[in-house]
């Protein structure tokens, strides 16, 4: 080895701090996570494949990923708008609203779940306006979409906000003096600057939505093939003592979340580089 593992420093405590960090990380995170992969390895590849591609499971993937994608897209659009309004404009109550944007982070998912269900049920404050048109929201896939929109809301706002605050005014002024309209300036100057942050926020909201459980199960109705999400199927299998089947599904979810994590890390790196370059 040409380079040493650690550069010399006068500060003490490196071995203790790193040792404790690694021990704790292994005990709490890495060993338990590896248990899922080891358990699944007891299945042969065809067995594994058959377990994770039954029609009921595939229907759950379709709902989980479809609803997550739709919710993340809606959040990208409105998150950008909310971030814009909070950064650029002044209006009464702005600080309180800014703080409340984090509510979905702070509110336990079960509470969000029952509140949204009460609101969007046929006799609820919001649901009753849709009922006459024959639109049911609670206990249908639409309800899943509503719950996932709620829990993903802060991600886009919070990733765009700091970048939007740093957009340099000179660029916008230059665009204006060159004859660009406000809309052109937004589309050609501001949007390209905040675009990496927008995509990062979208990916974070999507990743969170894919794994979500607590807020969804109350409002989904949980009908097999129709409104059953993948995390719920894992629980169902566990309750039937089908540990191997539950773990196989968990491994699918884990692999997907690791891939999403890699993509998000790449996006954040892109975002930082774009910011530094400006």
């Amino acid at each position: 080895m040409v380079t040493t593992f650690k550069r010399h420093s006068v500060l003490p405590g490196f071995n203790l701090a790193l040792g404790f960090t690694l021990l704790y990380l292994c005990l709490i995170v890495l060993i338990p996570l590896s248990a899922a992969f080891i358990k699944t390895a007891t299945l042969s590849w065809p067995q594994f494949w058959a377990t994770v591609t039954t029609p009921r499971v595939v229907a759950s993937y379709r709902l989980t990923f479809g609803a997550s994608l739709a919710a993340a897209l809606l959040n990208a659009l409105f998150g950008l708008l909310v971030a814009w309004v909070l950064v650029r404009y002044r209006f009464p109550g702005k600080q309180i609203i800014d703080a409340l944007v984090d509510l979905p982070f702070a509110l336990p998912t079960a509470v969000a779940g029952i509140a949204l269900t009460a609101l969007y049920a046929g006799n609820g404050w919001i649901g009753r306006w849709f009922e006459p048109f024959g639109i049911k929201i609670a206990f249908t896939p639409l309800g899943v979409f509503v719950a996932l929109t709620f829990i993903g809301l802060p991600f886009v706002v919070r990733t765009i906000q700091p970048v939007l605050e740093d957009v340099e005014c000179e660029l916008e002024e230059a665009a204006a003096t060159l004859g660009a309209s406000r809309l052109q300036t937004f589309a050609r100057v501001i949007l390209p600057t905040i675009f990496p942050a927008l995509v990062t926020g979208f990916a974070l909201a999507f990743a969170r939505a894919v794994g979500e459980y607590g807020s969804v199960i109350f409002i989904a109705g949980n009908m097999p093939m129709i409104s059953e999400i993948t995390p719920l199927l894992i629980i169902t299998k566990l309750e039937q003592y089908d540990y191997v089947g539950a773990t196989a599904l968990a491994v699918v979810m884990l692999v997907i979340s690791f891939v999403l994590l890699l993509i998000i890390n790449g996006l954040q790196w892109w975002s930082r580089r774009r910011e530094d370059g400006l």
Binding site: T109, V210, G211, Y213, L232, I235, A250, M253, S257
Partner: peptide
Amino acid sequence: SVSPVVSGLIY
């Protein structure tokens, strides 16, 4: 990035 359900399952 791990689903809460999976977090419980591994234990």
